[in-house]
Nucleic acid binder design. Structure first.
Length: 323
DNA sequence: ATGGTTTTTACTGCGTC
DNA sequence: GACGCGGTAAAAACCAT
């Protein structure tokens, strides 16, 4: 890391140096030998005498902003080492160069060289250990916060932490946000534990966008080879039922409906949440504890249309099985 | 990127309170 | 007339390829 970035920096310097040399060579027109002038507005180098375009599509290396006083210049300038959130310290911690040279460019004695090597080793050790620990601390705090907000039990938090640690150990973090990965870990853990929360619910309490969560989740699952089956519709039933103040009887009935739906094989490809919502609705009708479709759609975050479609299928499936 | 599937949105008509 | 419900068409979202 240290070495490559230093090397890259050097290479860039060499390149710009070369470009300047080229520019110096082309001070005369190859066609007529006249002087050339740079037209920065069009990004072209044009011969003053014959009008030949010597070079075009030049890159303007100047700033794209204007500053009207010194403080504004400081404000807008982005020169300096880039900071990055990929590292806990935003890349601002100490790095020790790989060249065995002192500040004046003189080579080091072999004894000092060994010393530097040891320093590098330890610096790296502390830096990475430190960063991982901070990273983990932040992530676990985040997981805890979200789990509380969603009312998820401790074992889910445990699982989520384990998943996150694994992700960290396998270096899945670079390029991804801590929030994103911790959210994904929690989502995965909740599903594994059989107390799933829908992606929408997760998104509500997370600091990152739904798309990113979904993307990161897929990535994490693939890389860690987590085996997560599609969520079981039945696992949503208790929550919906209690949100709607339904009796245990109705809840049991809803499960039955889902069981027969599974046997009839009409559940594949459909969203588990929709199925659960429909089962709860159907059960409420069957048990004379009617709740409206819109109430169910409210607690389940699913459209009424989907409830209608599903619950027809559920009832048909049950009839078909009984016959 | 694409095509097929599922879900959502928006709208309509019907019956009931 | 508001409400719950059913159905439909088109749009949007999702998923595997």
């Amino acid at each position: 890391m240290t070495d490559t970035s230093v090397r890259r920096f050097q290479r860039e310097n060499e390149e710009t140096a070369e470009r300047e040399d080229e520019a110096a060579d082309e001070l005369t027109c190859p066609e007529c030998g006249g002087d050339v002038a740079t037209d920065t507005e069009h990004g072209e180098v044009v011969c003053q005498d014959c009008g030949l375009v010597v070079d075009e599509d030049n890159i303007d290396r100047g700033p794209e902003w204007r500053a009207f006083d010194a403080s504004e210049r400081d404000e807008k300038s982005r020169v300096g080492a880039p900071t990055t959130n990929m590292m806990h310290d935003k890349g601002l911690s100490t790095n020790i160069g790989w060249q065995d040279k002192d500040a004046y460019g003189n080579s080091l004695s072999s004894r000092q060289r060994q010393k530097m090597q040891r320093l590098r080793t330890w610096n790296e050790r502390f830096r990475t250990r430190d960063s991982k620990e901070r990273n983990l601390k932040q992530a676990l705090g985040e997981i805890d916060r979200m789990a509380s907000a969603l009312g998820l039990p401790d074992n889910v938090r445990e699982t989520a932490s384990v998943i996150y640690r694994r992700a960290l150990d396998e270096n899945l973090l670079p390029g991804r946000s801590i929030e994103g990965v911790s959210t994904s870990a929690l989502y995965a853990a909740a599903r594994q534990a059989g107390t799933p929360r829908s992606l929408d619910e997760i998104t509500q309490v997370s600091r990152v966008e739904k798309d990113e969560i979904a993307r990161t989740y897929r990535y994490v699952v693939r890389e860690l080879k987590l085996e997560i089956q599609p969520a079981d519709p039945e696992s949503y039933v208790p929550r919906f039922a209690s949100d709607l103040d339904l009796s245990d009887e109705a809840e049991r009935r809803a499960r039955e409906l889902l069981q027969s739906a599974k046997e009839a094989g009409i559940h594949s490809g459909k969203s588990p949440v929709g199925l659960a919502a429909a089962a709860v609705y159907a059960a409420s009708l069957l048990c004379n504890e009617k709740v409206t479709q819109s109430e169910v759609s409210e607690v389940a975050n699913i459209s009424e249309v989907t409830i209608r479609n599903r619950y027809h299928e559920l009832l048909e499936a049950e009839d078909g099985l009984a016959a």
